[in-house]
Amino acid sequence: MINHKPDDTLPLKSTISATSRVEWQTVTLSIIIYGGFLALTWFWQSLPVVAVIGLGGWLIAWHGSLQHEVIHGHPTRNRFVNDAIGWPPLSLWLPYAIYREGHLTHHRDEHLTDPIEDPESSYFTQAAWERMGGIGRLLAAWNTTLLGRLTLGPIVMIASFLAQEAALVLNRDRRRAVIWLRHALGVAVILVWVSEVCGMPPWLYVFGFVYVGAALTRLRSYAEHRYADHHDERTAIVENSPLFGLLFLYNNLHVLHHKRPGVPWYRIPMLYRRDRDALIAVNGGLVYDGYLDVARRFLFRPHDDPRHPLHRHFGSGTADGMTEHAGVSIVERELA
């Protein structure tokens, strides 16, 4: 294990989190994403279907990255304005308010990867693992490979998320019901625009935009975290990925984001280059050389045992009445 360097070897929070009143780089990005979405859905019939699917999936994943940026206080100092930028439900299935709540909970780094405390954990407690049955465990094991995460992963996360949310609403959680009502109104507007105004078949939007976008986001989240004894060593770095780095707004340099979550996306590459050695020391050397390296290691092999090391006994999980997340991430339910 690499010895940790203290936080004072990294840039001061006060200096790297300070931003101008309006971050025009992020404002410009939001205009590009929403403008690109409107243009692609309007002119889709003029393009090959493969191009529509590729661009549509990219835009939905990019929009998820923008929502993540907004959650962390960008591009203005006004939360109402920021939330308005992130709220439109282009992905259809993930309400922004739920994503925001879960992701901020995820940033309690001392609980990273814990399937009870971390809503973005991809691990299971032993109790949840046993309840899944043979077929469920087989599917979960396949989902720990990169190929499984990209193909099966989106439907698993979306279906699991919707089932959990339906249970909350049916259990008369009024706050959740209000969130979903507002979300449904936004979804209705998106679908009317896509299908009625632009004439796009719903299947093309659901598959080419939503599903492919979710798969791209699953690529980002696949190797972001793994269990380690020290919480700083649970967060990975994926270097040398300029294209996906832009798509993920450099969240692939994930340990920097967790150590300094207030840093705006456009400053991350410079800060990472400057403090690379300190960051690698902090995360124990958990570094991948691009997403091809991730694919080489894990395309057909599991990233980790899906059972969390600290919850492999029935007595340490839900038997004490604590709520478990069943190893399904709010953010990875697209968005993680």
Rank of each mutant, 00 (worst) to 15 (best):
residue 151 T to S: 13
residue 17 S to Y: 13
residue 236 A to L: 14
residue 228 A to T: 14
residue 153 G to T: 01
residue 189 V to M: 05
residue 238 V to L: 04
residue 215 A to H: 01
residue 127 A to L: 14
residue 147 L to R: 01
residue 11 P to L: 05
residue 244 F to M: 14
residue 267 R to S: 03
residue 331 V to G: 15
residue 164 Q to I: 08
residue 202 P to W: 13
residue 224 E to D: 11
residue 110 E to K: 11
residue 152 L to G: 03
residue 271 L to D: 03
residue 109 D to G: 15
residue 237 I to R: 07
residue 106 H to E: 07
residue 62 W to Q: 08
residue 57 G to V: 01
residue 120 E to D: 11
residue 207 F to K: 04
residue 267 R to K: 09
residue 294 V to W: 08
residue 172 R to A: 12
residue 202 P to V: 10
residue 139 L to I: 07
residue 18 A to S: 15
residue 211 Y to D: 06
residue 173 D to W: 02
residue 163 A to E: 03
residue 273 R to M: 02
residue 135 I to L: 09
residue 243 L to H: 11
residue 183 H to K: 03
residue 168 L to R: 14
residue 228 A to I: 11
residue 140 A to R: 07
residue 143 N to W: 10
residue 203 W to S: 12
residue 3 N to G: 14
residue 295 A to V: 14
residue 181 L to D: 09
residue 157 M to A: 12
residue 227 Y to Q: 14
residue 204 L to M: 03
residue 95 P to V: 06
residue 311 H to I: 07
residue 180 W to S: 13
residue 12 L to W: 15
residue 130 E to C: 10
residue 47 L to W: 10
residue 181 L to Q: 13
residue 55 L to D: 09
residue 262 G to W: 00
residue 187 V to T: 06
residue 24 W to T: 08
residue 299 L to G: 04
residue 289 D to Y: 00
residue 205 Y to K: 03
residue 161 F to E: 01
residue 308 H to V: 00
residue 114 D to C: 05
residue 161 F to H: 08
residue 183 H to M: 06
residue 233 E to S: 11
residue 319 A to W: 10
residue 121 S to D: 08
residue 160 S to Y: 02
residue 230 H to W: 11
residue 133 G to F: 09
residue 105 T to N: 12
residue 224 E to Q: 10
residue 79 R to D: 15
residue 113 T to N: 13
residue 168 L to I: 08
residue 16 I to G: 00
residue 59 L to Y: 02
residue 303 H to G: 03
residue 245 G to S: 09
residue 299 L to W: 15
residue 65 S to L: 01
residue 141 A to K: 14
residue 68 H to K: 02
residue 129 W to A: 05
residue 80 F to D: 01
residue 285 G to P: 06
residue 113 T to M: 07
residue 96 Y to H: 06
residue 179 I to E: 01
residue 306 P to A: 00
residue 131 R to G: 08
residue 90 L to D: 03
residue 156 V to G: 04
residue 190 I to K: 05
residue 80 F to M: 15
residue 74 H to V: 04
residue 13 K to F: 07
residue 55 L to Y: 08
residue 40 L to R: 00
residue 326 A to N: 15
residue 143 N to L: 04
residue 282 V to Y: 14
residue 288 Y to E: 13
residue 119 P to N: 04
residue 122 S to C: 10
residue 146 L to Y: 07
residue 270 M to K: 13
residue 180 W to H: 12
residue 294 V to F: 06
residue 181 L to Y: 14
residue 23 E to D: 13
residue 333 R to H: 04
residue 323 T to M: 10
residue 197 V to Q: 11
residue 285 G to A: 08
residue 210 V to Y: 02
residue 233 E to H: 14
residue 313 H to P: 10
residue 289 D to A: 15
